[in-house]
Amino acid sequence: MALSLKAVQDAKFKRVVMPYVEYGFNLALSLLQNRSDAEDAIQEASVKAYQSVWQLRGEDSRAWFLRIVRNECMNILRTRSQARGKELSFDDEIEVVDQRTPNPVEVAEGNWTRAAMNEAIGKLSIGLREVLVLREIEGLSYQQIAEVTGTPIGTVMSRLSRARTALLNQLSGGETCP
C-alpha cells in the first residue's frame, strides 16, 4: 500500500525552512541590490529547499537554506554579468573600496545615519558584503558563514575584517592612505 506523505514533507519544510525565509530574503536583497530579483531568488530557493528538504539530516538548517539562497543569487548575478559581457568576480580587490583611515572622532561618536550606513554597505564588494551581512544581520558564526559561502574560515575572517575596515572608512570620511 502506498500512501502520500506530502503532509510530512510540508511539516518539515514549515519547521526547518520557513522560519528562515525572511532571513534569506534579506540576504538576497543585500547581494542582488534589487527587490524584484530578490523576490524571484527567494521563491526559487524556497522551491529547491522544499524539493530537497528530505536530504536535511541533523545539520544546521539555517545555514543549509541560506546556502541555497546564496547560490540562487549567484546564478542571477552571473546571468547579469554575462548580459553585460563581463565575468562575475568575487575578487575584492577589483571592486572599488575606499582606502582611507577612519576618522577617530566620528568613529568614537558612532552616530551614523541609516542612509549613510546602508549606502556604505551597498558599496562594498559582493564578497565583503555577504560576510558582513551574514555575520551582523543574520548572526551566523564563522563556521556557518564558511558553510554558506563555501569558503575556508580563514577567508571568512579576512573578508570580515576588510569589510569592517572599508565600512569604517566610508562612514568616517577619513584621509586617503598614501
Binding site: 568613529v107 558612532g110 551582523e136 544581520i137
Partner: peptide, 20 residues
Amino acid sequence: EMLQRLSQAVRAQYDYQPLP
C-alpha cells in the same frame, strides 16, 4: 570599542526588510 560600536551600528541601522 570601535569594533563593538560599528557592529551595533550596522545591526541598528541596517535596512532590514520584512518579507512581503
